[in-house]
Amino acid sequence: MERDKHFILGIFDDEDILLNAVKEIRDTGIRIHEVFSPYPVHGLDEELGYKRSRLPIAAFLFGVLGTTLALTMQFYMMKIDWTIIIGGKDFAAFPDFIPVTFELTVLLAAFGMVGVFMISSNLKPWAQPRIFDLRSTDDKHVMAIDIATNASVDLEKIKDALKSSGATEVNSKSFD
């Protein structure tokens, strides 16, 4: 059977039951493809074994870039390229450059991080998401288990594991 095509879905009503179920199912050796929720469930990423998001690092690096660009631009324009005496101040009036530097740091950090987030999470207006169950953006948590990656586990065993861990429904879903 092909990977990433045929799934068993467990539908959960409650976030605490879901968290418990993720733990139980992973303990039995079944690999979970992904869990879809209508809202962020705290601790779910840890239970699923995801590594912490590295987006804050991206934000920091873009912020450093913003600081550097802003200071370089201001020193170049005011001190090197075209000097003008303004109120008798030093051409490189460093304290005066802080506000613009701060703003550009924030601007680049925010846009850089969001850009990386959009690209890495494949968020774009023309994206066609695979929806496992329409209720996963409404009131249900949907746990998807790829049948092919769990080929060694009996199908019935997966369904039983889902049911016994608190899934209110167990369905199957295939994509072309």
Binding site: F36, S37, A59, V106, A109, L123, P129, S136
Partner: peptide
């Protein structure tokens, strides 16, 4: 909706983005 599917991994990144944006917006 930019093709949002509510995957746990996306939510994890989303929460991280929200927190950092909040941290940036506060001094801003």
């Amino acid at each position: 909706s930019f093709g949002w599917d509510g995957a746990a991994k996306t939510w994890m990144h989303y929460e991280s983005v929200s927190l950092i944006l909040a941290g940036l917006a506060t001094p801003l």
